[in-house]
Design a protein around this nucleic acid. Structure first.
Length: 427
DNA sequence: GAATATGATTGTAC
DNA sequence: GTACAATCATATTC
């Protein structure tokens, strides 16, 4: 009770000096104590039922209560209760540490260029992700701009919503503050309480903001995954790239494991990444092995092509110039996969007995070797090849693998010893 | 729109 | 770390 004057004074309601309700109730206030108790009972009843009344009625009742002679006493009691309540909640009022979740969201939004100053973050993110996906740079620009546009859209929505929230928060805060100030005329409300209330409102709005940030982050993640998920944006390699890869594959059919160098060269030539070259060869090896028959025609075509190419190169005193296999000693020549077109060497002419590899030199011998390998795999010419000792079966073994092939093919050294192992497993 | 082709990813073995 | 095998997801073909 000793705090009563300070409390009331702080409310600016000018109630200091009025006796407390307890004094009214404990009978020391006079002989008409019973009557006063009755009064207080009435007042409390009126207060309790005020919400059940219409607005006009409530307003009138409020006014009546305000003018009631017992009001000061009631007010002081309320002050007392309030003081106790404020004391009890004081501990909970301490500064909260920043929410780590909110910090994470803020950081992400900042990193993605959604919040903070616009810094072309979208393009940076798109570029980075495109690089990670190993895509070809040229055809990414359109997607980049699309990505940027969508990110910018997200950014715009985010800022609009954020602004709305802030505006709503301010409006609501002002409204509540006005309300509290008005109420402070009839009930004890300290500035601290108002402050606390403002804090609560801000926290509430902040949690709404967090939801907005979370949704925005999710939208950005979806956008990223849509644009940057390599699977989603799978593009077939262009025809030329496929041809180059196929040429290499079929010209090294007995050991289709390009070395790192060869992969790099192929990647460069095809405008794809080394990883894509590796993928391509991985897929090709498996699919070829699974269904050799299906690839027969293709194999024949490429083997013949390469043989023709090698013939033409050989005729000019050069070595075959496809990317080297790891074991192709002396095949470090420049990578030139040019097809020399129509000088097609028929498969029939290569059918074992009628063809003499020595006629065209070692390079062509390799191609012949490959072609025979193709033929042997398909089962079409195996007998004649078996009789003719020029070809010893290599490449795919009984288990269907190349690994155990005793002699990995090489453009320049097709007759390597059995100890050779392709580079892909040399690590 | 179904079938097929194809580039990428994932899990496993070495 | 690489290759293989299975699988996914998309592109292309019919």
């Amino acid at each position: 009770m000793d705090e009563q004057p300070r409390l009331m004074h702080s409310h600016g309601v000018g109630m200091a000096g009025h006796p407390g309700l307890a004094q009214h109730m404990d009978g020391t206030g006079g002989t008409d104590g019973e009557g006063r108790k009755q009064d207080i009972g009435d007042i409390l009843q009126q207060i309790m039922t005020i919400t059940d009344q219409s607005l006009d009625e409530a307003q009138a009742r409020k006014h009546a209560l305000n003018c009631h002679r017992m009001k000061p006493a009631l007010f002081s009691v309320l002050c007392e209760i309030k003081e106790k309540t404020v004391l009890s909640i004081r501990g909970a009022q301490e500064e909260e540490p920043p929410d780590p979740q909110l910090m994470r969201l803020d950081n992400m939004l900042l990193a993605e260029g959604v919040s903070g100053p616009e810094k072309g973050g979208g393009s940076a993110a798109a570029a980075a992700a495109a690089a990670a996906a190993g895509g070809v740079g040229a055809d990414n620009s359109a997607e980049h701009s699309d990505y940027r546009a969508k990110l910018s859209q997200i950014r715009q929505i985010y800022h609009t919503e954020l602004e709305k929230y802030e505006q709503a928060c301010n409006e609501f805060t002002t409204h509540v503050m006005n309300l509290l100030r008005e109420q402070s005329r009839t009930r004890p409300i300290s500035p601290k309480e108002i402050e606390r209330m403002v804090g609560i409102i801000h926290r509430k709005f902040s949690s709404i903001q967090m939801q907005l940030k979370q949704s925005t982050c999710e939208a950005v993640m979806i956008l990223r995954s849509r644009f940057l998920d390599a699977r989603r944006k799978r593009r077939n390699f262009n025809k030329q790239a496929t041809e180059i890869l196929n040429e290499y594959f079929y010209s090294h059919l007995s050991n289709p494991y390009p070395s790192e160098e060869a992969k790099e060269e192929l990647a460069k030539k095809c405008s794809i990444t080394v990883a894509q070259v590796s993928n391509w060869f991985g897929n090709k090896r498996i699919r070829y092995k699974k269904n050799i028959g299906k690839f027969q025609e293709e194999a024949n075509m490429y083997a013949a092509r390469t043989a023709v190419s090698a013939t033409s190169v050989s005729a000019h005193g050069s070595q075959a110039n496809s990317p080297s296999t790891p074991n192709s000693a002396g095949s470090a020549g420049s990578f030139n996969m040019s097809n020399s077109g129509d000088l097609f060497m028929s498969v029939q002419s290569l059918n074992g007995d009628s063809y003499q590899g020595a006629q065209v030199g070692a390079n062509v011998q390799s191609q012949v070797d490959t072609l025979r390998h193709v033929i042997s795999q398909t089962g079409g010419y195996s007998d004649s090849l078996a009789v003719n000792q020029m070809y010893s079966p290599q490449g795919i073994n009984a288990n269907g693998g190349w690994q155990d092939a005793p002699t990995p093919s090489s453009v320049t050294s097709p007759t390597e010893g059995p100890g050779s192992v392709h580079s892909d497993t040399s690590n």
